[in-house]
Design a binder for these strands. Structure first.
Lengths: 197, 197
DNA sequence: GCTCTATATAGACACTGTCAATATAATGTC
DNA sequence: GACATTATATTGACAGTGTCTATATAGAGC
């Protein structure tokens, strides 16, 4: 029998994660404090340490889950598209962009070196897999070019990341006008694609 | 006569700025606390409020100064080069990149929406002037192209910013191997230039 | 001399992360 | 069953933080 308020929560790790993610979306990473999360989860401020050793570990876990979700989304879109070579690079790029504009605080967290641990092995692993998707598409799309596929992949990912990051800082144009920040975002991806054609 | 420790510091605003900048370079933005800066400046923790109304204002002032310095550097390099059209875009891009790799914490601060005020009029003004430099070069370099100069400017700035930002997160390759992060950075700029040729 | 303003101090408040000591629940072992 | 061990949660403390208040002093204007 589960009591109304058992001493052992049972699923606290998951609840802490969910609460932290909700607070991230609503208040930004600054709103994800150990004490606020614990309070929202209905436990004392000392409870979370049993599941996340410190705030950094909690935020890193959230970041990792976001990269996982992004990779899943990319693979899902790629699979849906089949092996038509040409538009596949756009798919990877626009999936990243869509994610950034849909979840600005989550996206910002992914690149906050002061908040998460960018040397975490699992985090690096999923980032590498995303990077591999880009490289794979480029090695198919531009076989005999001046620069190697890594340069193309780095350039495109950099461009997409830089665009999202600067837009989230209010640069170029306000975010409100379109949820996906599409017009200019699509334009620069088109431009990049055009360069390869 | 200046006493050894006069009540009125006389130049506290400047000292606070300098101390804060030094702490930023050494410890990152997290090390720039009002109390630590006040202590290093030899005043009480309540003194800074007379010169910077809160921590955000202090960090925003520092950010503004960095953009000013970057613009000055860009203009200096452009002037040195003369009106040869072709390599001027590279100059703007590499000046940004050099700044980012030389002063990682300063660069990171420029895009920390939670730490500085990106609606500050003076800040926006100097950012606009940097953006204008890019646009000017593109309007000279690519007169009759498929995309307007803003798209090129946004794309290049995004690419450069994204590359620096991700490298500062440890992405792609370690920062240690070269202070300027040059090889891949030069490659992606070359690639962009090549697209326009 | 005086007043007014700018500037600095000191203390308080409500937060924060993290650690240590303690208490309780759950699990494994006999 | 009883007992020891481990996992989990509570509570309190500590050193920080930004920011607000009340207070004190310096300097400038008259």
């Amino acid at each position: 029998m589960t009591q109304l308020k058992p001493f052992h929560h049972g699923d606290l790790k998951r609840v802490l994660f969910d609460v932290a993610l909700a607070r991230l979306d609503e208040h930004g990473a600054g709103g994800v404090t150990i004490r606020a999360v614990a309070k929202a989860a209905g436990v004392s401020h000392g409870a979370p340490v049993n599941h996340y050793k410190d705030r950094r570990a909690l935020l890193t876990a959230i970041a990792k889950a976001q990269f996982d979700a992004l990779l899943t989304e990319i693979d899902s879109r790629l699979e849906e598209l089949g092996e038509d070579c040409e538009p596949r690079i756009e798919i990877v790029a626009s999936a990243m962009m869509d994610f950034g504009f849909r979840y600005p605080h989550r996206y910002r967290l992914l690149w906050s070196a002061d908040l998460i641990d960018h040397t975490d092995a699992e985090l690096l692993s999923v980032m590498d897999r995303i990077y591999d998707r880009l490289c794979t598409e480029f090695s198919k799309a531009v076989p005999g070019r001046k620069f190697d596929k890594d340069t193309y992949a780095v350039a495109l990912w950099s461009m997409v990341h830089g665009y999202v990051d600067m837009r989230l800082s209010g640069m170029f144009e306000p975010l409100n006008d379109s949820i996906s920040g599409a017009p200019r975002g699509e334009a620069i991806i088109d431009m990049f694609k055009g360069f390869l054609a």
